[in-house]
Design a binder for these strands. Structure first.
Lengths: 253, 253
DNA sequence: TCCTGACTTCCATCCAGCGGAATCCTTGCT
DNA sequence: AGCAAGGATTCCGCTGGATGGAAGTCAGGA
């Protein structure tokens, strides 16, 4: 048996442990073989390390033999201070927006070139949206994304345009020329509204949330049926909620 | 320099990596030294492994030099299927309960001998409660806990009584003799209601959530001001919500 | 029954991780 | 400024735990 560590993988043990965790970012349940493939590890190494994950409780193995993210990781994850604080402060305001509209209410932050949804409240008859908590969409493809992009450092826009060779959704702008004036408009209006832009028959209003340093750290939005586009209460309420959350975060004036 | 691996720690690298993560289960922000102490690792080892965590993004280092749980772990954690599915299904029902009561609405599961809160919706004027998402309380100390305990295997009760030598809260029952009839009562009523039992001036109603195998997998509750204890709508609504969530999970009849 | 694919166990090799100690950096006190 | 104390970082020679190919086991399908 020639099983020395010899040449090959330059990764440290810790990196391999993390690679296994990363395997779950693209799927909810995986077999050992799938984990090994995604993490690019030999089956036997994956087997051993996954066993350590399972012993710890970060990954659980179901009766069907498939591995899933365990409650240990869930408990750890919800301790992330940024998400925890923001969510805690924002939730009552999101409730208000939900009661007003009975539609989708979103809370999101920027994560690289994407929007990361921290919270979503959906009415039973709300417009179906692709976003789900923990999921990521490109910055230019949603209302909250545009708001976050509008108040991001300009380099980010260049990077985004460069990384988006093709259109993501039918009505989405991806070129410099289309996006730049739109963002300027959003900045001067203080928020973003759109009709039938991201999703068919939908109307969205999104506004920025600022912290005590006046930096935009998150965004709230309502995504409603298009026939509400003439209702002035929606943009108004989103703006009020965003300012309320900002104040609760220590923002002044 | 005699820095060999020699005798001492029997833990594998992966276990040390996890020990570092566990350090954050008791505090939101830690210095390197604190992490090393909690994980029982030499400072230099902790330093190296924490650096790997930071590189991966599971832990972030703030401007103040303190380490916190990062968004990478948050994103991974919310992928835990049990929490994700339950939360997604239950949220609309929790909203309904919140709108009815404007009080604390809880969704919780059993985690060992404790209750683990998956979700909490709190009104601005709700009774202050200790529970927070991701936090754990003993099973016998809360309404949802009693419900979960009532439908748990009996061995669990023995274990719980054995592990609780003293009273946790003023009005909490911890002995076999007190707890057993109470649980029987809860089972026959199908839910648990209590006044001034867990917290002063509070009234709570909790009901079990069942999945397609008819097993109790979670519990919902309202914790309201004590003056609502005569309002029959609260227990009723909690029961209806619990059955609604159960049905949405595939439970029949 | 045989075959296929997925999972589990084994073990000789050897280098990646180890951690004590020295060093650097920051903060607070005199 | 000078000093002390505590925390963070870097160094480096030693060695035993991690490694992964291969063989063995198991389950299901043809």
């Amino acid at each position: 048996m020639s099983g020395n560590r010899a040449a090959g993988d330059e990764r440290s043990v810790a990196e391999k442990v993390f690679a296994i965790a990363d395997a779950f970012s693209s799927a909810g349940e995986l077999s050992l073989t799938e984990i090994a493939q995604r993490a690019e590890l030999p089956l036997s190494t994956a087997h051993r390390l996954v066993a350590e994950w399972v012993e710890w409780g970060g990954i659980v193995r179901g009766d069907d033999g498939l591995y899933r993210v365990g409650m240990r990781l869930w408990k750890l994850g919800v301790r992330a201070p940024t998400a925890r604080r923001l969510r805690g402060v924002a939730l009552p305001f999101l409730e208000d927006l939900y009661e007003l509209s009975r539609e989708n209410v979103h809370l999101a932050v920027r994560d690289g070139l994407g929007v990361l949804y921290l919270e979503r409240i959906s009415g039973r008859s709300a417009v179906p949206v692709i976003s789900d908590i923990g999921s990521r969409l490109p910055l230019h493809a949603t209302g909250v994304g545009l708001v976050l992009l509008a108040w991001s450092p300009p380099e980010l826009l260049d990077e985004l345009v460069a990384s988006s060779p093709r259109k993501y959704l039918a009505n989405t702008m991806t070129t410099d020329a289309e996006l730049r004036p739109r963002l300027a408009e959003i900045r001067s209006a203080g928020m973003a509204t759109s009709v039938n832009e991201m999703t068919q028959d939908s109307f969205s209003a999104a506004a920025p949330i600022r912290d005590h340093t006046d930096a935009v750290v998150a965004a709230v939005s309502i995504v409603a049926h298009a026939d509400r586009s003439s209702d002035p209460r929606y943009p108004l309420a989103v703006g009020v909620a965003a300012r309320g959350i900002s104040r609760a975060l220590g923002w002044r004036s």
